[in-house]
Design a protein around this nucleic acid. Structure first.
Lengths: 117, 117
DNA sequence: AATGAGTGCTTCGAATTCCGAAGCGCGGTC
DNA sequence: GACCGCGCTTCGGAATTCGAAGCACTCATT
């Protein structure tokens, strides 16, 4: 029942009264599972339960919350067949995430090289 | 007391037993304030309290937690003068975040154009 | 029509995470 | 000494997340 509002540019955001779009984005993406959901939905449209499985069985209540947020933020939408998918804006967001993916590879490589554990 | 382990490639991560580097990155970045801290530290090295102010006065306990995680993940380190800064790897991560920043601008523009509220 | 399986989604108590005010010990500086 | 700001910790309460259970619905199959 207690849901903090969906972060949106132009309105105050958790941790920032300015509502700058960057801060709104960082708040939105900084919620657990949000990045993962965008990533999984970017691969293909998915139904609720299948999406949940792709996200390693994340809790359905939070998934529902995140999907609502993503729809409000115009990143996701429901297809006529009932599946969830990314809007064009959502796909842009996912592509903006690609450098992060590439970085994570370098990250793994660096840690493997410099670490002992 | 109860701290979930710092996400690292190669070890099991919250919500994924594979330890794939991407999932580790998504878990790390999907924690509140983490993205923001990387962003603020990328601008310039900062001391603890100043960094806290830059992050809209986020709670010191969580800031301490995040800084520890970022250090363990080799994204951040402490300078000899005591300030926090990003490692080269951390700077790479921040640059990987730049497209997200650009995207957030398009996001704001799109919402302003298509929305009424 | 009945059964069963799968779906999207909700509920709710418990576990985890986050918050924030307060305070500690420390090094400077007046 | 008496400040002051620093990095950092503590801890009780608030907010978020979890996950098992269940509801209403659709679609086959029988």
């Amino acid at each position: 029942m207690n849901e903090s509002p969906t972060p949106m540019p132009g309105r105050p955001v958790r941790g920032s009264t300015t509502g700058r779009s960057l801060m709104a984005a960082l708040d939105l993406f900084g919620r657990r599972w949000t990045l993962r959901i965008i990533w999984e939905l970017g691969n293909e449209p998915l139904g609720f339960r299948l999406l949940q499985r792709r996200c390693d069985g994340m809790s359905s209540s939070v998934l529902q919350q995140r999907l609502t947020e993503l729809q409000e933020a115009r990143l996701a939408e429901v297809l006529r067949d009932g599946n969830y998918t990314l809007t064009p804006l959502g796909h842009d967001a996912r592509e903006a995430l690609c450098p992060v993916i590439e970085w994570s590879r370098r990250w793994a490589a660096d840690l493997a090289a410099n670490d002992v554990a």
